[in-house]
């Protein structure tokens, strides 16, 4: 599985599809991509983690970045996050600020 991502803006929702890993090799590129949507009225950032198998702290930083730097304090959503990835969020205590959804 390739460690890729796709970002699409749909109205005020930023939809991000994650594949494989979100780690040091690709997290900075995703952060740079997200930065293009700064102050553009994003109300929700939705990460589709259906095909995500691994996240490192660099990936967690992307989520913190989305919450803090896009402007307007958007809602953060994770779709179909696996148990181990959820465990990392839980350990860092930020799971309470993310809506985890099963689809």
């Amino acid at each position: 599985m390739e460690n890729t991502f796709e970002v699409k803006k749909d109205g005020s929702v930023l939809n991000i599809v994650l594949n494989g890993q979100l780690a040091t090799a690709n997290a900075p590129a995703l952060m740079e991509e997200l930065n293009k949507y700064k102050d553009q009225g994003v109300t929700k950032v939705s990460f589709d983690a259906t095909n995500l198998t691994y996240i490192a702290s660099s990936g967690i930083r992307v989520v913190i970045f989305a919450k803090q730097k896009l402007g307007g304090n958007p809602e953060i959503e994770f779709i179909n996050c696996n148990d181990e990835i959820f465990g990392v969020f839980e350990m860092t205590g930020i799971q309470n600020y993310i809506n985890f959804i099963k689809k």
Partner: peptide
């Protein structure tokens, strides 16, 4: 870890994990 997400710093997360 008690800070809300809006106020979190990003340093030290790796060694903490």
């Amino acid at each position: 870890l008690d800070l809300p997400l809006e106020e979190r710093g990003i340093g030290g997360l790796g060694i903490f994990l």
